[in-house]
Design a protein around this nucleic acid. Structure first.
Lengths: 136, 136
DNA sequence: TATAACTCTAAAGTTGGCTTGAGAGTCAAT
DNA sequence: ATTGACTCTCAAGCCAACTTTAGAGTTATA
Protein backbone atom coordinates (compact mmCIF):
# COMPACT_ATOMS: atom_id res chain seq x y z
CA UNK A 1 0.00 0.00 0.00
CA UNK A 2 0.99 3.60 -0.62
CA UNK A 3 -0.10 6.75 1.18
CA UNK A 4 0.07 10.52 0.88
CA UNK A 5 1.52 12.69 3.62
CA UNK A 6 -1.88 13.84 4.89
CA UNK A 7 -3.12 10.28 5.22
CA UNK A 8 0.02 9.29 7.09
CA UNK A 9 -0.25 12.30 9.37
CA UNK A 10 -3.76 11.26 10.33
CA UNK A 11 -2.99 7.57 10.66
CA UNK A 12 0.07 8.15 12.85
CA UNK A 13 -1.23 11.24 14.59
CA UNK A 14 1.83 13.28 13.74
CA UNK A 15 1.64 16.80 12.23
CA UNK A 16 2.54 17.03 8.54
CA UNK A 17 5.19 19.61 9.37
CA UNK A 18 6.81 17.14 11.75
CA UNK A 19 6.88 14.38 9.17
CA UNK A 20 8.55 16.75 6.72
CA UNK A 21 10.99 17.72 9.44
CA UNK A 22 11.88 14.08 10.14
CA UNK A 23 12.37 13.51 6.44
CA UNK A 24 14.60 16.56 6.18
CA UNK A 25 16.65 15.21 9.08
CA UNK A 26 17.14 11.98 7.16
CA UNK A 27 15.04 9.76 9.39
CA UNK A 28 13.08 8.34 6.43
CA UNK A 29 15.90 7.26 4.14
CA UNK A 30 13.83 5.00 1.91
CA UNK A 31 10.94 7.38 1.33
CA UNK A 32 10.14 7.76 -2.36
CA UNK A 33 8.66 10.58 -4.38
CA UNK A 34 6.35 11.11 -7.31
CA UNK A 35 7.55 12.94 -10.41
CA UNK A 36 6.04 16.06 -8.89
CA UNK A 37 8.14 15.74 -5.74
CA UNK A 38 5.18 14.64 -3.58
CA UNK A 39 6.18 12.08 -0.95
CA UNK A 40 4.94 8.50 -1.30
CA UNK A 41 4.82 6.46 1.91
CA UNK A 42 5.00 2.67 1.86
CA UNK A 43 4.25 0.42 4.83
CA UNK A 44 7.95 0.22 5.57
CA UNK A 45 8.01 4.01 5.91
CA UNK A 46 5.10 3.85 8.33
CA UNK A 47 7.02 1.25 10.30
CA UNK A 48 9.97 3.62 10.40
CA UNK A 49 7.68 6.34 11.77
CA UNK A 50 6.46 3.91 14.40
CA UNK A 51 10.05 3.29 15.47
CA UNK A 52 10.75 7.03 15.50
CA UNK A 53 7.68 7.50 17.67
CA UNK A 54 8.93 4.78 20.02
CA UNK A 55 12.36 6.37 20.22
CA UNK A 56 10.86 9.78 20.79
CA UNK A 57 8.43 8.58 23.47
CA UNK A 58 11.32 7.04 25.33
CA UNK A 59 13.41 10.18 25.19
CA UNK A 60 15.90 9.40 22.45
CA UNK A 61 17.30 12.56 20.82
CA UNK A 62 17.08 12.88 17.06
CA UNK A 63 20.87 12.84 16.79
CA UNK A 64 20.85 9.29 18.13
CA UNK A 65 18.01 8.27 15.86
CA UNK A 66 20.28 9.31 13.01
CA UNK A 67 22.86 6.82 14.22
CA UNK A 68 20.22 4.12 14.05
CA UNK A 69 19.34 5.18 10.50
CA UNK A 70 23.00 4.91 9.57
CA UNK A 71 22.95 1.32 10.85
CA UNK A 72 19.85 0.53 8.86
CA UNK A 73 21.57 1.85 5.76
CA UNK A 74 24.61 -0.29 6.51
CA UNK A 75 22.45 -3.40 6.05
CA UNK A 76 23.08 -6.83 7.54
CA UNK A 77 26.52 -5.83 8.80
CA UNK A 78 24.85 -3.81 11.57
CA UNK A 79 22.27 -6.36 12.76
CA UNK A 80 24.03 -6.98 16.06
CA UNK A 81 24.55 -3.27 16.63
CA UNK A 82 20.87 -2.65 16.08
CA UNK A 83 19.93 -5.47 18.42
CA UNK A 84 22.19 -3.92 21.04
CA UNK A 85 20.59 -0.53 20.51
CA UNK A 86 17.15 -1.95 21.28
CA UNK A 87 18.48 -3.79 24.31
CA UNK A 88 19.93 -0.54 25.58
CA UNK A 89 16.60 1.15 24.90
CA UNK A 90 14.82 -1.57 26.85
CA UNK A 91 17.11 -0.91 29.81
CA UNK A 92 16.40 2.80 29.59
CA UNK A 93 12.64 2.31 29.41
CA UNK A 94 12.76 0.03 32.45
CA UNK A 95 14.62 2.75 34.31
CA UNK A 96 12.05 5.32 33.22
CA UNK A 97 9.21 3.17 34.50
CA UNK A 98 11.04 2.77 37.81
CA UNK A 99 11.51 6.54 38.01
CA UNK A 100 7.81 7.13 37.39
CA UNK A 101 6.96 4.60 40.07
CA UNK A 102 9.27 6.40 42.46
CA UNK A 103 7.52 9.69 41.73
CA UNK A 104 4.20 7.94 42.20
CA UNK A 105 5.23 7.33 45.81
CA UNK A 106 5.75 11.07 46.25
CA UNK A 107 2.32 11.70 44.76
CA UNK A 108 0.64 9.09 46.95
CA UNK A 109 2.26 10.63 49.98
CA UNK A 110 0.91 14.04 48.99
CA UNK A 111 -2.54 12.60 48.45
CA UNK A 112 -2.43 11.25 51.97
CA UNK A 113 -1.02 14.54 53.27
CA UNK A 114 -3.77 16.59 51.69
CA UNK A 115 -6.64 14.25 52.42
CA UNK A 116 -5.80 14.26 56.12
CA UNK A 117 -5.34 18.01 56.01
CA UNK A 118 -8.71 18.45 54.32
CA UNK A 119 -10.31 16.29 56.97
CA UNK A 120 -8.74 18.40 59.69
CA UNK A 121 -9.60 21.60 57.88
CA UNK A 122 -6.00 22.76 58.02
CA UNK A 123 -2.55 21.84 56.91
CA UNK A 124 -1.28 22.68 60.38
CA UNK A 125 -1.90 19.16 61.65
CA UNK A 126 1.26 18.23 59.76
CA UNK A 127 3.23 20.99 61.42
CA UNK A 128 2.76 20.26 65.12
CA UNK A 129 5.12 21.80 67.62
CA UNK A 130 6.09 18.35 68.85
CA UNK A 131 7.52 17.29 65.51
CA UNK A 132 10.77 19.21 65.07
CA UNK A 133 11.89 16.98 62.21
CA UNK A 134 8.78 17.17 60.09
CA UNK A 135 9.59 15.98 56.58
CA UNK A 136 6.14 16.02 55.04
CA UNK B 1 18.41 22.13 59.73
CA UNK B 2 19.72 24.76 57.35
CA UNK B 3 21.80 24.34 54.21
CA UNK B 4 23.74 26.37 51.68
CA UNK B 5 23.02 26.23 47.97
CA UNK B 6 26.02 24.01 47.19
CA UNK B 7 25.02 21.49 49.80
CA UNK B 8 21.47 21.43 48.50
CA UNK B 9 22.68 21.05 44.91
CA UNK B 10 24.70 18.01 45.92
CA UNK B 11 22.01 16.49 48.12
CA UNK B 12 19.29 16.89 45.49
CA UNK B 13 21.53 16.36 42.49
CA UNK B 14 20.39 19.56 40.81
CA UNK B 15 22.83 22.13 39.37
CA UNK B 16 23.23 25.30 41.40
CA UNK B 17 22.27 27.36 38.35
CA UNK B 18 19.01 25.44 38.11
CA UNK B 19 18.16 25.99 41.76
CA UNK B 20 18.76 29.73 41.27
CA UNK B 21 16.58 29.59 38.16
CA UNK B 22 13.73 27.91 40.06
CA UNK B 23 14.02 30.50 42.77
CA UNK B 24 13.94 33.31 40.22
CA UNK B 25 10.81 31.76 38.73
CA UNK B 26 9.19 31.90 42.14
CA UNK B 27 9.10 28.16 42.81
CA UNK B 28 10.69 28.53 46.24
CA UNK B 29 8.46 31.17 47.81
CA UNK B 30 9.52 30.60 51.41
CA UNK B 31 13.25 30.53 50.83
CA UNK B 32 15.08 32.86 53.21
CA UNK B 33 18.34 34.78 52.93
CA UNK B 34 21.25 35.80 55.07
CA UNK B 35 22.11 39.47 55.51
CA UNK B 36 24.59 39.00 52.67
CA UNK B 37 21.90 37.81 50.30
CA UNK B 38 23.07 34.17 50.42
CA UNK B 39 20.21 31.70 50.23
CA UNK B 40 19.37 29.62 53.32
CA UNK B 41 17.49 26.37 52.67
CA UNK B 42 15.35 24.77 55.35
CA UNK B 43 13.95 21.24 55.19
CA UNK B 44 10.68 22.61 53.89
CA UNK B 45 12.57 24.16 50.97
CA UNK B 46 14.17 20.81 50.24
CA UNK B 47 10.71 19.27 50.29
CA UNK B 48 9.60 21.88 47.77
CA UNK B 49 12.53 20.93 45.54
CA UNK B 50 11.51 17.30 45.86
CA UNK B 51 8.02 18.21 44.67
CA UNK B 52 9.44 20.28 41.81
CA UNK B 53 11.57 17.30 40.84
CA UNK B 54 8.50 15.08 40.92
CA UNK B 55 6.54 17.51 38.77
CA UNK B 56 9.43 17.85 36.36
CA UNK B 57 10.03 14.12 36.07
CA UNK B 58 6.41 13.65 35.21
CA UNK B 59 6.45 16.31 32.53
CA UNK B 60 4.76 19.23 34.23
CA UNK B 61 5.76 22.60 32.72
CA UNK B 62 7.10 25.28 35.03
CA UNK B 63 4.12 27.50 34.24
CA UNK B 64 1.86 24.91 35.87
CA UNK B 65 4.20 24.50 38.84
CA UNK B 66 3.68 28.21 39.40
CA UNK B 67 -0.03 27.61 39.70
CA UNK B 68 0.68 25.07 42.41
CA UNK B 69 2.89 27.58 44.22
CA UNK B 70 0.06 30.08 44.08
CA UNK B 71 -2.17 27.50 45.79
CA UNK B 72 0.42 26.88 48.47
CA UNK B 73 0.57 30.60 49.13
CA UNK B 74 -3.22 30.71 49.37
CA UNK B 75 -3.04 28.46 52.43
CA UNK B 76 -5.77 26.17 53.72
CA UNK B 77 -8.32 27.58 51.28
CA UNK B 78 -6.63 25.65 48.48
CA UNK B 79 -6.25 22.26 50.17
CA UNK B 80 -8.86 20.59 47.99
CA UNK B 81 -7.44 22.18 44.84
CA UNK B 82 -4.01 20.87 45.71
CA UNK B 83 -5.39 17.42 46.41
CA UNK B 84 -7.06 17.48 43.00
CA UNK B 85 -3.83 18.55 41.36
CA UNK B 86 -2.02 15.51 42.74
CA UNK B 87 -4.87 13.24 41.74
CA UNK B 88 -4.63 14.61 38.20
CA UNK B 89 -0.88 14.09 38.30
CA UNK B 90 -1.41 10.49 39.41
CA UNK B 91 -3.67 9.93 36.42
CA UNK B 92 -1.06 11.42 34.10
CA UNK B 93 1.73 9.29 35.53
CA UNK B 94 -0.37 6.16 35.13
CA UNK B 95 -0.90 7.10 31.49
CA UNK B 96 2.83 7.66 31.05
CA UNK B 97 3.63 4.25 32.47
CA UNK B 98 1.09 2.71 30.10
CA UNK B 99 2.68 4.53 27.19
CA UNK B 100 6.13 3.26 28.14
CA UNK B 101 4.76 -0.26 28.41
CA UNK B 102 3.26 0.12 24.94
CA UNK B 103 6.61 1.22 23.57
CA UNK B 104 8.21 -1.70 25.37
CA UNK B 105 6.14 -3.97 23.15
CA UNK B 106 7.61 -2.30 20.08
CA UNK B 107 11.09 -2.80 21.52
CA UNK B 108 10.47 -6.45 22.35
CA UNK B 109 9.21 -7.03 18.85
CA UNK B 110 12.39 -5.46 17.45
CA UNK B 111 14.53 -7.60 19.74
CA UNK B 112 12.81 -10.66 18.34
CA UNK B 113 13.11 -9.32 14.80
CA UNK B 114 16.84 -8.72 15.11
CA UNK B 115 17.67 -11.85 17.05
CA UNK B 116 16.06 -14.02 14.37
CA UNK B 117 17.76 -11.96 11.67
CA UNK B 118 21.13 -12.38 13.37
CA UNK B 119 20.56 -16.12 13.58
CA UNK B 120 19.73 -16.23 9.87
CA UNK B 121 22.62 -13.95 9.03
CA UNK B 122 20.34 -11.58 7.18
CA UNK B 123 17.34 -9.35 7.65
CA UNK B 124 15.89 -10.75 4.44
CA UNK B 125 14.16 -13.60 6.27
CA UNK B 126 11.62 -10.99 7.33
CA UNK B 127 11.09 -9.84 3.76
CA UNK B 128 10.18 -13.06 1.96
CA UNK B 129 8.47 -12.85 -1.41
CA UNK B 130 5.53 -14.80 -0.02
CA UNK B 131 4.67 -12.16 2.54
CA UNK B 132 3.17 -9.25 0.61
CA UNK B 133 1.81 -7.64 3.78
CA UNK B 134 4.97 -7.68 5.84
CA UNK B 135 4.57 -5.30 8.75
CA UNK B 136 7.75 -6.00 10.67
C1' DT C 1 44.71 40.28 56.34
C1' DA C 2 45.30 38.08 52.29
C1' DT C 3 43.63 34.89 49.36
C1' DA C 4 41.02 31.32 47.34
C1' DA C 5 36.74 29.74 46.93
C1' DC C 6 32.60 30.74 47.38
C1' DT C 7 28.02 33.63 46.71
C1' DC C 8 25.01 37.06 44.36
C1' DT C 9 22.28 39.36 40.08
C1' DA C 10 20.99 40.46 35.52
C1' DA C 11 21.20 39.60 30.98
C1' DA C 12 22.47 37.18 27.13
C1' DG C 13 23.28 32.72 24.98
C1' DT C 14 22.21 27.77 24.00
C1' DT C 15 19.68 23.64 22.66
C1' DG C 16 16.28 20.66 20.76
C1' DG C 17 12.39 20.02 18.37
C1' DC C 18 9.59 21.60 16.08
C1' DT C 19 6.18 25.39 13.55
C1' DT C 20 5.25 29.10 10.51
C1' DG C 21 5.42 31.80 6.42
C1' DA C 22 6.35 32.97 1.72
C1' DG C 23 6.43 31.73 -2.75
C1' DA C 24 5.82 28.34 -6.20
C1' DG C 25 4.14 24.18 -8.26
C1' DT C 26 0.36 20.06 -8.52
C1' DC C 27 -3.95 17.80 -8.61
C1' DA C 28 -8.99 16.59 -8.83
C1' DA C 29 -13.37 18.14 -9.73
C1' DT C 30 -16.30 21.06 -12.12
C1' DA D 1 -9.62 25.69 -18.23
C1' DT D 2 -10.48 27.27 -13.81
C1' DT D 3 -10.71 26.82 -9.06
C1' DG D 4 -9.67 25.41 -4.42
C1' DA D 5 -7.23 22.47 -1.84
C1' DC D 6 -3.49 20.32 -1.76
C1' DT D 7 1.91 19.66 -2.17
C1' DC D 8 6.78 21.25 -2.20
C1' DT D 9 11.25 23.89 -0.26
C1' DC D 10 13.83 26.99 2.35
C1' DA D 11 14.48 30.07 5.84
C1' DA D 12 13.11 32.15 9.74
C1' DG D 13 10.74 32.06 14.05
C1' DC D 14 9.45 30.11 18.48
C1' DC D 15 9.48 28.03 23.09
C1' DA D 16 10.88 25.96 27.36
C1' DA D 17 14.31 25.14 30.38
C1' DC D 18 18.27 25.91 31.39
C1' DT D 19 23.40 27.59 31.23
C1' DT D 20 26.87 30.90 30.79
C1' DT D 21 29.10 35.20 31.47
C1' DA D 22 30.45 39.36 33.70
C1' DG D 23 31.01 42.03 37.39
C1' DA D 24 30.58 42.62 42.22
C1' DG D 25 30.34 41.24 47.02
C1' DT D 26 31.15 37.41 51.01
C1' DT D 27 33.30 33.96 53.81
C1' DA D 28 36.46 30.53 55.78
C1' DT D 29 41.17 29.47 56.44
C1' DA D 30 46.14 30.24 56.88
Amino acid sequence: MEYGIREVAEMMNIPISTIRYYDKEGLLPFLSRKESGYRIFKDSDLEMLRVIDCFKSTGMPISQMKEFIAMVKAGDASLQERYDLFEERKRIVNQQIKELEKQMDVIDHKLWYYSTAIEAGTEDIHKEINRPCNTD
